[in-house]
């Protein structure tokens, strides 16, 4: 049974007629040009937008779930994050435990170890570099041990090394009963790391399926208005823009 099933979801002029499922253990990539509705879709699933249609978590409509219960299962890693106060890294990660109403030290330590930020637990988060902060935000999400992580362009502002690390962590999370929905611009990374892709265009689903089925030269031409060469024959898929 699908972990999340989305039926005919619409959100004013941003999303229309979205039908989608998220399976357990899946890393689902959401791709599409700027303004296609990627963030809006994630915000609907996170319960931040008053959508039309249905989004069900294990068969239960998410808007009917009490906030804390929803938040324990679905966590959002927003595109941009900033702390208003000069909090310590440990306290930022502890924020992930808010839906649970505890500050479980072992889970906070575990999340810090996973993301490699353990050495800065007592440092101020605003003293860290952008890439280091990005890992702290991810640790915050991991500390809540959610079943589903909604990661909205988590790779923006990260160098190649950290991009790789973050993708490894998300891939590791999307196992067993847990899943990840990842909004991402880099089509090469999307094709390599995601189990399935959803290609959005102007608030509608253009295509959904395995990377090979979605990332065709015709689809890229139609949605991004660029000519691209697509090669799925090698171990790492290669999408190259022509001209």
């Amino acid at each position: 049974m699908a972990l999340i099933s989305i039926e005919q979801v619409q959100l004013d002029s941003r999303l229309a007629g979205i039908n989608l499922t998220l399976q357990p253990g899946e890393l689902l990539g959401v791709i599409g040009p700027n303004g296609a509705g990627k963030s809006s879709l994630l915000e609907c699933i996170a319960g931040l937008q008053p959508y039309g249609g249905h989004i069900a978590l294990d068969g239960e409509e998410i808007t009917r779930l009490p906030g804390a219960r929803r938040a324990r299962r679905i966590a959002l890693l927003p595109q941009r994050c900033q702390s208003a106060w000069a909090l310590k890294v440990a306290d930022v990660i502890a924020l992930g435990r808010l839906p649970w109403g505890d500050e479980d030290a072992a889970l906070i330590q575990q999340a810090a170890d996973q993301t490699g930020v353990a050495e800065w637990l007592e440092s101020r988060v605003d003293h860290l570099s952008g890439g280091e902060q990005a890992r702290v935000w991810l640790a915050r999400v991991l500390a809540g041990q959610p079943d589903i992580i909604l990661a909205d362009e988590p790779l923006a502002s990260l160098d190649l090394h950290y991009q790789q690390r973050v993708l490894e962590l998300l891939r590791q999370h999307a196992q067993g009963l847990r899943s990840v929905i990842l909004s991402i611009h880099d089509l090469n990374l999307a094709a390599h790391w995601c189990d399935r892709l959803v290609l959005l265009d102007a608030g509608r689903i253009h295509a959904v399926g395995a990377p090979q089925e979605v990332l065709t030269p015709a689809a890229i031409r139609q949605v991004y208005q660029v000519e691209a060469q697509v090669d799925f024959s090698s171990e790492r898929p290669l999408i190259r823009v022509l001209g």
Binding site: G67, A71, I74, P78, S83, A84, L87, L95, L98, G101
Partner: peptide, 19 residues
């Protein structure tokens, strides 16, 4: 708890189930 959640912004606070 809302005040703590709001440290990272409204969106994060709401996604953590706070009204």
């Amino acid at each position: 708890r809302l005040l703590l959640g709001l440290s990272l912004g409204e969106q994060v606070a709401q996604s953590m189930g706070l009204s």
